[in-house]
């Protein structure tokens, strides 16, 4: 680990001031400390924001969640469990209990990919680590990699479960930077790799995630998260599905659908949603919507199965929510 300066922030303003546009913010450390130990991240300074207020408050009919709230606390919150079960389930499907106890909501958004070549700082090429270096994943082990929205520069996936649920829930990210505050939709917060896979979010230098807003969502009460992985627990998703649905007389009044493990960002399945809205809640309709969403999928040598797996997982998850089991 490269030496760094450490400072603990007392409040948001203090944090942004301490960071001075250059430091990295430290939450639970569950990803950043690992990346620093691997020398993939070498910040000169860390500003510890894990002690900032960690409150979950009612907000415009929804919830406002402090960025320092621990993953466990968010999944445990009664309002989340009752009104946003997809979020509680996504969090509880991620990592281990110990890590969920440490990891913050803000940090979860900034998790970096598990691509083996990204992690191999010494021995592999990676455009995400070193722009322009090349990508060893495209022709290497890419079983866990992206099938949607990838670029010739990068085929990595975003590893978060929580963010997939947040994408489905239209969450809003609250930011505070040297130039003031702003909000960004979670679906716009993460970026596709394009030419610059080293850029993963729209965060400006020095900008701090201060909170997440969950809008009121009547349909979120009927929501769930399905994660498919290589072992029963404590593994990253191969494919995951976050879904919420509002059903009336067998007709889909409204639906939210997002996929994990398939792209550089949590993948909001807007094409499928549009196809489903105001249509019948049937397995055939689910299948057609899934196929539409995955029509542009561009699998690699090692991850072709993800297209079919995602299709099946979408159909099964919507079926579970509507009672239309396959």
């Amino acid at each position: 680990m490269t030496p760094f300066r450490y400072a603990r922030a007392t409040d948001v303003t203090d944090a942004v001031r301490l960071a001075d546009g250059g430091a990295r913010y430290l939450g639970g450390g569950t990803n950043l400390v690992d990346l620093m130990r691997e020398t993939i991240e070498r910040p000169a300074a860390l500003v510890d924001v894990s002690g900032l207020p960690a409150t979950i408050e009612a907000h415009d009919g929804g919830l406002l969640i402090g960025a320092a709230v621990r993953n466990t606390a968010l999944a445990e919150h009664p309002a989340v469990r009752a009104r946003y079960p997809v979020l509680a389930r996504a969090i509880l499907a991620g990592a281990s209990a110990q890590i969920r106890n440490m990891a913050t909501v803000g940090g979860n958004l900034l998790q970096r990919t598990r691509c083996a070549y990204f992690y191999d700082e010494e021995g592999s090429r990676c455009n995400k680590r070193v722009p322009g270096q090349g990508c060893d994943a495209i022709d290497g082990f890419n079983r866990i990699h992206a099938i949607l929205g990838a670029s010739p520069a990068c085929v990595a996936t975003h590893p978060s479960d929580m963010c997939v649920a947040l994408a489905a829930l239209d969450a809003i990210v609250h930011l505070h930077g040297p130039d003031g505050t702003r909000t960004v939709a979670l679906t716009d917060f993460h970026t596709l790799p394009g030419e610059r896979p080293d850029i993963e979010t729209v965060l400006a230098p020095g900008e701090l995630i201060t909170a997440l807003a969950l809008p009121a969502s009547p349909l979120a009460a009927r929501s769930t998260y399905r994660k498919v992985r290589d072992r029963a627990s404590y593994a990253f998703a191969l494919v995951s599905v976050a879904a919420a649905i509002d059903l009336e007389d067998g007709i889909v009044r409204d639906v939210r659908l997002a996929l994990g493990g398939v792209a550089h960002k949590p993948w909001r399945a807007t094409k499928a949603e549009t196809a489903l809205r105001n249509g019948p809640a049937t397995e055939a309709a689910f299948r057609a919507a899934a196929e539409l969403e995955l029509a542009d999928a561009a699998p690699l040598a090692g991850n072709g199965f993800k297209v079919e797996l995602a299709r099946r997982a979408i159909v099964a998850t919507l079926g579970e929510l509507t009672g239309e089991t396959a």
């Binding site: 083996a116 070549y117 992690y119 191999d120 021995g123 592999s124 060893d136 022709d139 290497g140 082990f141």
Partner: peptide, 13 residues
């Protein structure tokens, strides 16, 4: 996972 292009173990974790 042994990357046969470089003879390197890619999942040393």
């Amino acid at each position: 996972q042994f990357d046969e292009r470089k003879g390197r173990i890619m999942n040393p974790s």
